[in-house]
């Protein structure tokens, strides 16, 4: 089984800066971390590998410094890494990102399963996973907390939605985005860490992927960020404290004063 995990390097949320001209995130010079949800995708892939004989390739699209993130994931036991990096990829929205990622996955070939985190903590769109699956014309399931292979061509996945839990049967190849319930990401091991340090990480750009510069990056993006702003802080919040009984009583009083129907 060949599993591809897509990861993203995101700015450490403690110090995010926005480029005033392009309104996109300034990545250079800001400490980066692996999108925390992507680490759950890596963990999910490693769990499958623990249970069967799978090969895991991790890919990311980003500036050359994104190689660090790939080495970090290699040190946790992933087999191979691939960096998609080209000046032409800069400024990509979710669509242009998905075009690039799906081209790379197509080029890798023989991929049975693609895993992504449910969303990235910088953009929070949760779009790239489903878009990649759509471009590859394969089924996908989002917000998955558990997956089990049924047979060589099918997976049973459990999705967590706001309404409840759904169990799906999915034919492979498929794409799955995972949530933290798949299991706490394991730490690196020394052997993997040593291997990761020396691992050769190929870099693919538009030439390797056979893509047109107009289809990727800012040029290939359908959306452009016009303005970024922090929403005004809401000042009408009330924090109810005390024992559970007191809280319920207070909440009831508030709802009654607000003349909520049925109270």
């Amino acid at each position: 089984m060949h599993i591809v995990v897509c990861i993203k390097q995101v700015p450490d949320t403690k110090n995010v800066r926005i480029d005033p001209d392009t309104h996109t995130l300034v990545r250079q010079g800001v400490e980066s971390i692996i999108n925390p949800f992507d680490l759950f995708a890596v963990e999910a892939a490693l769990q499958i590998k623990d249970a069967s004989s799978a090969t895991i390739t991790v890919i990311t699209m980003g500036p050359p410094q994104a190689e660090e993130a790939l080495r970090e994931v290699l040190s946790r036991g992933v087999d191979a890494a691939l960096l998609l990096s080209d000046r032409a990829f800069a400024g990509a929205d979710t669509w242009a990102t998905s075009v690039t990622l799906s081209a790379a996955i197509r080029k890798l070939g023989n991929v049975d399963l693609i895993l992504c985190g449910k969303q990235a903590v910088d953009g929070d769109t949760a779009q790239v996973g489903p878009e990649v699956a759509t471009l590859l014309d394969i089924p996908y399931a989002t917000f998955v907390k558990k997956m089990e292979p049924l047979d060589a061509q099918h997976l049973k996945v459990t999705r967590q939605t706001d309404e409840g839990t759904e169990v799906w049967k999915l034919s492979t190849p498929a794409l799955i985005t995972v949530i933290k319930e798949v299991g706490e990401p394991r730490l690196p091991s020394l052997r993997h860490k040593m291997r990761a340090k020396k691992a050769a990480i190929p870099v693919w750009g538009i030439a390797e992927l056979g893509l047109d510069a107009n289809d990727v990056g800012l040029c290939g993006s359908f959306t452009q960020v016009v303005r970024v702003f922090s929403p005004p802080r809401r000042t009408d919040r009330v924090i109810i404290e005390g024992s559970l009984e007191e809280q319920v009583e207070q909440l009831y009083r508030y709802l009654k004063e607000a003349k909520v129907p049925g109270i």
Partner: peptide
């Protein structure tokens, strides 16, 4: 050595 630093790093992370 690089390897010794990796040991330190990993143990520190744990």
């Amino acid at each position: 050595t690089e390897e010794q630093q990796m040991i330190q790093e990993l143990a520190a992370q744990i």
